[in-house]
Amino acid sequence: MIEFVDLTKRYGKFTAVDHLTLHVPAQGAVALWGVNGAGKTTVIKCLLGLLRFEGQITVDGCDVRRQGRAARQRIGYVPQELAFYKEMTTFDMAEFYARLKGAPRTHIAPVLEQVGLAEHQAKAVGALSGGMKQRLALGLALLADPPVLVMDEPTSNLDTAARSQLLQLLTQVKQAGKTIVFTSHRIEEVETLADDVAVMEQGRLQFVCPSSALAQRIGLRTQVKFVVPGDQLDHALAILRDDGLAVRRNGVGVIVDVAHGEKARPIHVLGRADIEVIDFEME
């Protein structure tokens, strides 16, 4: 469905994307993973024809450079930074973009319903919450029912509740058979939505792997802080160390460095030693 062939983007002497070749199959979901500055957003902008680039990108056979409109007709885009005309109402905004996309007016109401904004259609976009704006962005992207959904850090500016709501919606969209390309640096987002992950570093594609294997491939670790009774703190530190965990003291608790997928391990270790876990949090 989407082909990146030898994609290179340079800003003067700086190479933001370096000879990226990637295939995204129809109905597949691929996440572009990497730290800030890895080149993920640049890839998305090239895909949308917003940047000049070397190499070739095709969407469903349409060359992004030469058939930009046709390529973008097949794409619904959810940006990282919400850039809306704040004075417009939600409905007017949807109507404006529906006209640009050639989507029938009758699509607006069901789409607003789908993203949970039917009750807010008369509200000015500037008055919507962050989560609502992001759902509106998703709704606008889906107006013309495009086969491809492209998202740039779709949940980066959302709180936990809004993120969970959006992820639920996106899961439904994925199940409806859309081809999805998105950038992210949140593991739970990638594991929920993506089939495969393309890991980028300094503009270069490092490797592509199934999303379930990402944490292990990149050695993703999490720090978990446990609060235990003060008189058992030293014992807890010793027990955890004996079990091979990297652990250090932190005030009234201990901080344990664990591999992704092993966050419950310290709880079991402490439980076996009859040490009560009063509280815990992940950092």
Binding site: K45, L48, G49, L50, G68, R69, A70, R72, Q73, I75, Y77, P79, E81, A83, F84, Y85, Y97, L100, K101, G102
Partner: peptide
Amino acid sequence: EQGTLAYLLAQPVT
């Protein structure tokens, strides 16, 4: 400056 131009041009328009 507001970013609305890039979003507009990301639509099927020339």
